[in-house]
Design a protein around this nucleic acid. Structure first.
Lengths: 225, 225
DNA sequence: TTTTAAAAGATAGTATTGCTATCTCATTAA
DNA sequence: TTAATGAGATAGCAATACTATCTTTTAAAA
């Protein structure tokens, strides 16, 4: 049996749905590779077009500009992560165990999911760490938000908030703690690998230490008397 | 008596020291205004040159490129914040009180410091929130780091770590907690104002709530049994 | 006071980026 | 069979991100 995993994306994220054509899938697959290789600032549609053997104009038929492509792939990532959170916590009773699972999913490197042939998840994870925040750190964040472009991110945080409240219904900052867990998981990873003196894991570069730090941080707060 | 506050900046941050000439000071002052107005992505040296009545080439004499200018102003900000941390905690005995002061300094809007005529600190604070991480989220972060461009940020975090260890010498993650405090203070502010559903402060948009959240988070962790 | 060096102004030029437009051709679905 | 869709090819253009050079003004050292 061959399973195919398809994530339904917001129509406003693209001009033409890249999942539905060969060229579209190549744009996503190679786009992720190229952003990872050069960084988002040096990434251009022209270079991408050369890489996949099409023209600049061909890519503009799918995405308005490179920033929209970044939003698309981050949105895809958050949707995919939420899906993984759901399937990995559905049969867990203890909310604390659930929350630990969430932290682990957020803070550890993913393996490529073969069911999504046009996305390389492990490279995508690296991109989210170093480029992800640039999707919303812009002057037009409010308009983009009105178009629901950040919905998957917000839904993931909502899901995590719910688990936090299951752990402690009286905890006062479930939403802020959720977004903090997500951002800190990525920032500590970036710091560990690039500015190691900003973390306590620089020597070992061991992701499990980020998990331990986050668990300590989160459970001290929500279990406090 | 007229006090002047001068912050000594790393030589590698600039081509020509902007603090030493009129044009240099204008570049900093108006550069901050323009980045705040347009966002870093749309900010160009050409627009800045028009604003201050010089030419593009004139600005390139001070900074290699706009990214270096961003690193310069973020480095300036962290130096200035560390200075404020020092003078605001020097006469405090209780490390917990010190740490609360640090959180307050990080998470609340600053007023313009008249002793630094060529920097508008309250606008700078806004820039750090929305553009600050872009200084190091690049492919060349390691080389920039070797040139010590992020030293002020790292020194601030080192200072905060020391205070954390004063509070609890056995706490295991002082460095990671420091960088977490700094980043979360800014991210929660950005979310509160732009993606409010990611926080618990969206309705009131009250910075003091971010302070309360951070205090709760930090002190639960370091005071835990 | 002269000289000399640094700072700033003025102008020009170039490769790349970030698009838009249009025309053609192959494939597919009605 | 026709019409719509996807994609290749080419052209063009304004803005961006620089570099280079030459001149004039300003300020500090001899």
């Amino acid at each position: 049996m061959e399973l195919q995993l398809q994530i339904k994306m917001n129509e406003k994220l693209f001009v033409r749905n890249p999942e539905q054509t060969e060229l579209g899938k190549k744009i996503i697959l190679q786009g992720i590779q190229l952003i990872h290789k050069n960084g988002f600032e040096s990434f251009t549609f022209k270079k991408l077009a050369e890489d996949i053997g099409t023209t600049e104009a061909g890519i503009y038929r799918y995405f308005d500009n490179k920033h929209r492509l970044l939003i698309y792939i981050t949105a895809w990532y958050w949707s995919w992560l939420e899906y993984r959170v759901v399937i990995n916590t559905v049969n867990l009773k203890d909310p604390a165990v659930k929350l630990k699972k969430v932290i682990q999913l957020l803070a550890t490197t993913v393996e490529d999911d073969i069911r999504t042939s046009y996305v390389n998840e492990s490279i995508l994870h690296q991109i989210i760490i170093s480029e992800g925040t640039k999707a919303y750190l812009t002057k037009h964040v409010s308009e983009d938000n009105k178009d629901q472009l950040f919905k998957p991110y917000k839904e993931l945080c909502t899901k995590i908030s719910a688990i936090i409240l299951e752990c402690n219904p009286k905890y006062k900052y479930p939403k802020s703690l959720s977004s903090t867990i997500v951002e800190v998981a990525h920032f500590q990873n970036f710091f560990m690998n690039n500015l190691p003196s900003l973390t306590d894991f620089g020597k070992t570069k061991d992701e499990s230490k980020i998990v331990a730090f986050l668990e300590d941080l989160v459970f001290s707060s929500i279990r406090k008397l």
